[in-house]
Measured scan of single mutants.
Amino acid sequence: DNLVIALHSYEPSHDGDLGFEKGEQLRILEQSGEWWKAQSLTTGQEGFIPFNFVAKAN
C-alpha cells in the first residue's frame, strides 16, 4: 500500500495543495517530482503534498 505518515504539519499555500497535521496518515495516489498527489485518511480530501514532509508507514 502507498501509505505514508506526516513527519511535519503542512499548511497549504496554493490551490490544490492538501494540508495535514503531523502524524496524519495519507495514501499516495501519484508520485511526480517534489509534489505528490495524496489523499488524507483522516479527512478523505485529496491534493498535492511536499514529498519531504512524509515517510513510508510500516
Rank of each mutant, 00 (worst) to 15 (best):
D1L: 05
D1W: 07
D1F: 06
N2C: 07
L3W: 09
L3Q: 11
L3C: 08
L3V: 09
L3Y: 11
V4S: 07
V4M: 10
V4G: 06
V4F: 13
V4W: 15
V4D: 12
I5T: 15
I5S: 06
I5F: 12
I5K: 06
I5G: 04
A6C: 09
A6G: 09
A6D: 01
A6Q: 01
A6T: 11
A6R: 03
A6M: 04
L7F: 03
L7Q: 11
L7I: 12
L7Y: 05
H8I: 08
H8A: 13
H8R: 15
H8P: 02
S9F: 02
S9C: 08
S9R: 11
Y10Q: 07
Y10C: 06
Y10W: 14
Y10L: 05
Y10A: 03
Y10D: 05
Y10M: 06
E11L: 10
E11D: 11
E11A: 11
E11K: 15
E11V: 13
E11T: 15
E11W: 06
E11P: 06
P12I: 05
P12F: 00
P12N: 04
P12K: 05
S13G: 08
S13C: 13
S13I: 09
S13R: 13
S13V: 12
S13Q: 13
H14K: 15
H14A: 14
H14V: 12
D15A: 13
D15G: 10
D15C: 10
D15Q: 14
G16V: 07
G16Q: 08
G16A: 07
G16K: 07
D17Q: 15
D17F: 09
D17C: 14
L18F: 06
L18K: 00
L18S: 01
L18D: 02
G19K: 11
G19M: 07
F20S: 00
F20I: 05
F20A: 05
F20G: 00
E21Y: 06
E21G: 07
E21N: 08
E21C: 09
K22G: 03
K22M: 05
K22A: 10
K22R: 08
K22N: 02
G23W: 04
G23L: 01
G23A: 03
G23C: 02
E24W: 03
E24M: 03
E24V: 01
E24L: 00
E24G: 03
Q25N: 15
Q25M: 14
Q25F: 13
Q25G: 07
L26V: 02
L26I: 04
L26T: 02
L26P: 01
R27W: 06
R27E: 14
R27M: 07
R27A: 08
R27D: 06
I28Y: 06
I28P: 01
L29N: 00
L29S: 06
L29C: 06
L29Y: 09
L29T: 08
L29H: 10
L29V: 14
L29Q: 06
E30S: 11
E30M: 08
E30N: 13
E30Y: 07
Q31M: 10
Q31P: 09
Q31N: 13
Q31C: 12
Q31A: 15
S32R: 14
S32Q: 15
S32E: 15
S32I: 09
S32W: 06
G33C: 05
G33D: 05
G33S: 10
G33N: 11
G33P: 05
G33Q: 02
E34I: 11
E34G: 11
E34R: 14
E34H: 09
E34L: 09
E34A: 13
E34W: 07
W35G: 07
W35Q: 15
W35Y: 11
W35D: 06
W35F: 11
W35K: 15
W36Q: 06
W36K: 05
W36M: 12
W36I: 04
K37A: 04
K37C: 04
K37G: 00
K37W: 11
K37T: 08
K37M: 07
K37L: 11
A38W: 04
A38M: 03
A38Y: 03
A38L: 07
Q39P: 01
Q39G: 03
Q39C: 06
Q39F: 05
S40D: 04
S40Y: 01
S40I: 03
S40R: 12
S40T: 05
S40Q: 04
L41A: 06
L41S: 05
L41C: 12
L41G: 03
L41R: 05
L41Q: 10
L41D: 03
T42A: 13
T42K: 15
T42N: 15
T42F: 07
T43H: 04
T43I: 00
T43W: 00
G44H: 07
G44S: 08
G44A: 08
G44I: 04
G44T: 04
G44Q: 09
G44L: 08
Q45M: 12
Q45D: 09
Q45S: 08
Q45Y: 07
Q45P: 04
E46Q: 13
E46H: 06
E46C: 14
G47Q: 00
G47V: 02
F48V: 12
F48H: 10
F48R: 14
I49G: 01
I49A: 04
I49V: 12
I49E: 00
P50H: 05
P50T: 01
P50W: 03
P50S: 02
P50Q: 01
P50L: 00
P50M: 00
F51V: 13
F51A: 15
F51H: 13
F51T: 09
F51Y: 13
N52M: 09
N52E: 14
N52R: 14
N52C: 07
F53S: 15
F53C: 10
F53V: 08
F53K: 07
F53A: 14
V54I: 06
V54T: 06
V54N: 01
V54E: 03
V54D: 00
V54R: 02
A55K: 11
A55Q: 15
A55D: 12
A55S: 14
A55R: 14
A55P: 01
K56P: 15
K56N: 15
K56T: 12
K56I: 09
K56R: 12
K56L: 09
A57I: 14
A57P: 13
A57C: 08
A57S: 12
A57W: 11
N58S: 05
